[in-house]
Design a protein around this nucleic acid. Structure first.
Ligand SMILES: [Zn+2]
Ligand SMILES: [Zn+2]
Ligand SMILES: [Zn+2]
Ligand SMILES: [Zn+2]
Lengths: 132, 132
DNA sequence: TCTTTACCCTATAACCATTATAGGGTTTCC
DNA sequence: GGAAACCCTATAATGGTTATAGGGTAAAGA
């Protein structure tokens, strides 16, 4: 299978596949005589794994770590669930700070209603004041 | 006031101040004979404005737009509250997708408990399966 | 005065994951 | 045989900062 087919199949851009290869997340595939990359079912599975990890917001470095476990399955999985715990904590922190931000933005938004000129806009004066 | 003082005063890195100047968010200050930048109270206020906008997650482009209103206050503020509405919608969308992600991660995390080897780790098999 | 320490300058690269662009070859189908 | 769709590499751009290299200046103590 050529790169375009793989891209469609897994739902990843062609450029991104080449990028993953350079970054060591995908094994370099064989090449045809013309230089075209030829992929196997194993590549499909690995790429799908990478993509699912990305959808879980794992970094490429973390994904590389996880692949180490796929490649050497006879080691304890301690670091795997540690990584997930870290991710979960991080996502929760993000949610909290975004919720705080939402409150600030909504409060700021209420300061402007109706049409008036910028000099009198409560949003601008609100930001210029303090927004702590 | 020199750049280091300004940086401390407003709580922004020195590099970042120079970056904002290059990006046109801060007016280029006068220079001493030795080339050092000399800032006035107006610069302090503008930088503080930029920083508060950044804390509201506004992009540098949006901040530049807002500064246009500060500089020309006799125009309607329509775009100002439009921008804020857009930001609020964006933040809410982010929160929703992070909450969905959190659920996925937590569900995945429950698949691993106790010490075992990677081949049997429910997290890895969970990702390898489908995690939709 | 000498020297250390802290500060200032510019230019350039790194961060992250991806997307875009330039410039050129190959395959496929009509 | 010619156009469309595909493939290749290399390099730059995205956003907002932070880091680094390499060098000049200033404020302080010894
Ligand atoms: Zn074993
Ligand atoms: Zn208004
Ligand atoms: Zn007016
Ligand atoms: Zn496990």
């Amino acid at each position: 299978m050529r790169i375009g087919q793989l891209a469609k199949l897994v739902g990843v851009d062609v450029q991104t596949i080449r990028f993953y290869e350079r970054e060591g997340l995908l094994v370099s595939p064989e090449r045809q005589q013309n230089g075209y990359r030829i992929y196997t079912q194993q590549h499909v599975e690995r790429l799908a794994f990478v993509r699912r990890c990305r959808m879980l917001n794992l970094s490429l470095a973390e994904i590389g770590e996880l692949q180490g476990y796929l490649d050497e399955p006879h080691q304890p999985c301690t670091a795997v669930n540690g990584m997930l715990d870290g991710r979960i904590a991080h996502v929760r922190a993000q949610i909290n700070s975004l919720q705080a931000l939402e409150k600030q933005l909504v409060a700021l938004r209420t300061r402007c209603s109706g049409v008036h000129e910028a000099a009198d806009c409560g949003i601008l004066t609100g930001i210029s004041a303090e927004t702590r």
